[in-house]
Simulated scan of single mutants.
Amino acid sequence: MGTIHSFNAVSLLDILISLSAAFVLGGLIGFERQYRQRTAGLRTNVLVAVGAALFVGMAIRLYGHAGAVRVIAYVVSGIGFLGAGVIMREEGNVRGLNTAATLWGSAAVGAAAGAGLVGEAVLGTLFVLSANTLLRPIVNRINRQPLDVESVEATSMVYVIAERAHQKMVMALLEEALEQINHPIGDLDIHAFGEEDVEIEVTLAATSVDGDELDALVKRLAALPAVRQAFWSQSTTE
């Protein structure tokens, strides 16, 4: 498919509209995720939406060229494995999602260029660069906002270190206290903590909690003679 012969101003306008729509709509989805401080935020969602729009736009332009469409399908599936390779999980935090999404966008740009759709490739490049540069200040500003536990999806944990001999009593008091403030238990683990104590680790089922209520709860628990220490923490990692 010749590069010069494949140039089509109308199709180029179509892909521009499609990429713009993907950029804006993906940005709206990503803004909500970024506001809740989730791992796949604003830039990741925009990059994925733009890459997907470019891939679909190419498939439409190359209708009738079954061989080229088949190769693009191989690229789409193969880039998933490559992207997974750059995603790392360190101490519960996921890193590399933006890099993986950028690779997805780069694959779409490369496929367009290889198919002779240079105009589409240039537009795709501009949108990928915009996602990684123009949106960065917006992401940084959102991340500097105070964490609002009423609107942010999070995992809340309550930890109680108690004497092993009074483990059952402390667990019963903890469960009763959580029921009173309407914070049901999602998961519960008990670990040895030294020779005479245990650590009771409770994961709350709710993704939105009242911090003042939990502060008061752990303060009451810490005052018990059988309790060495009580505290709670919250994580927004996925």
Rank of each mutant, 00 (worst) to 15 (best):
A9R: 03
A9P: 00
L13S: 13
I17S: 02
S18P: 00
G30E: 11
R33A: 14
Q34M: 05
Q37W: 00
R38V: 10
G41E: 07
T44R: 04
V48P: 04
V48E: 07
V48L: 15
A53I: 05
A59K: 00
G64D: 05
A66E: 15
G67Q: 10
V71D: 13
I72N: 05
Y74S: 15
S77Y: 04
G78A: 08
G80P: 03
F81R: 09
L82G: 03
A84V: 09
M88N: 01
M88A: 03
E90A: 11
N93G: 05
N93E: 15
V94S: 02
R95M: 15
G96F: 02
L97I: 15
T99M: 15
A100D: 11
A107Y: 05
A108D: 12
V109G: 07
A113Y: 00
L117P: 01
E120T: 04
A121N: 08
V122R: 02
L123M: 15
G124A: 12
F127N: 06
N132Q: 04
P137G: 01
V139S: 09
R141D: 03
I142Q: 00
N143S: 07
Q145H: 05
P146F: 06
L147D: 09
L147E: 13
E153H: 05
T155G: 12
V158I: 14
M169H: 10
V170Q: 00
V170R: 01
M171E: 15
A172C: 03
A172M: 10
D189I: 07
F193M: 15
A206N: 10
T207R: 11
V209A: 10
V209C: 10
K219R: 11
K219M: 10
L221H: 01
A223P: 00
L224A: 00
S233L: 12
